[in-house]
């Protein structure tokens, strides 16, 4: 997790590219669902507690909300908290990879949301 999340700084190019992707999907009549996948409970607690990680979920959410504001074809399902989809700590392979049972719960949760 450290390798991916360390020194988190907004990548303006990635945001612009996402904007292009969502726009092009809309132009082709494709509906988009963005899912923020969960972390295992211990990893999620670390993200919430450590100063170097604490702000990251909020910053990520702000980016996605900004994208949603201009893309009506896109919906968002924030499942970063494993409890949101009902995933138990044992339903993970490691800090960020889910077992199949948890993956199913995430899909069920996100696809059934209004």
């Amino acid at each position: 997790m450290n390798a991916y999340m360390k020194d988190w700084e907004v990548d303006a190019n990635a945001v612009t590219l996402m904007n292009y992707l969502l726009t092009d999907a809309k132009n082709h009549g494709t509906k988009v669902l963005i899912i923020q996948p969960p972390f295992q409970q211990t990893a999620y607690n670390i993200i919430q507690e450590r100063p170097e990680f604490r702000d990251i979920p909020g910053r990520y959410n702000a980016i996605v909300q900004n994208l949603l504001a201009t893309h009506q074809n896109t919906t968002y399902c924030n499942a970063i908290d494993p409890a949101t989809a009902g995933c138990a700590p044992t339903e993970f392979i490691d800090s960020g990879h889910t077992q199949r049972s948890c993956s199913q719960k995430i899909l069920d949760y996100c696809l059934k949301r209004p």
Partner: peptide, 11 residues
């Protein structure tokens, strides 16, 4: 799109 938290991380 299963958008990882680090997909917007420049570093």
């Amino acid at each position: 799109i299963y958008l990882d938290t680090w997909n917007f991380n420049k570093n």
